[in-house]
Amino acid sequence: MGRTEILIGGVGGQGVVLSGILLGTAASLYDGKQAVQTQSYSSELRGGSARAEVIISEDRITDPEVRRADILILMAEDAVGRYLNKIKPKGLLVIDADLVKGVTSGDYDILAIPATSIADKEMNNIIVANLIILGALIKKTKLLSVESMEKAIEASVPKKAKDLNLKAFRRGLELS
């Protein structure tokens, strides 16, 4: 596998950066790969725009910026205008179908997951919608092993939230 560039766009509070950290941690510490994760966000902690970038590669990663995303994950309508032009031809677009409506089809695959409504109905907590999306992504792309992702979740989320996050991730695995 060569270099996979992932861009996650959403708003603050959706766990955009955490999603990036989980992918990077799983790749780097548990999957024997190289990973770089970067992020940007506006100064307000909640509600402002948030972006995480992850590059996963078998080899040493020189350029650390996502230039053209192999995988673009959009978790807010706001992010469509900002990032849709960043997707690579034949790339994979993953959207939270409950929050992102304005996506037209293009030269990319679309994986639409009603993550927020599932999180709300089944887990009573929309905060884990991002984990549902990650589950679906991993199932579809086999980018990283399920075991590595689960280890990364265990290592990265607060103890109290561990079970809920694992549950959401596993639910996502069933969705694609």
């Binding site: 780097s28 510490l29 990973a35 770089v36 940007s40 650390p64």
Partner: peptide, 10 residues
């Protein structure tokens, strides 16, 4: 800088 400071890597 903010890019390297906020970057995560091994």
């Amino acid at each position: 800088d903010a890019f390297v400071g906020h970057m995560r890597e091994e």
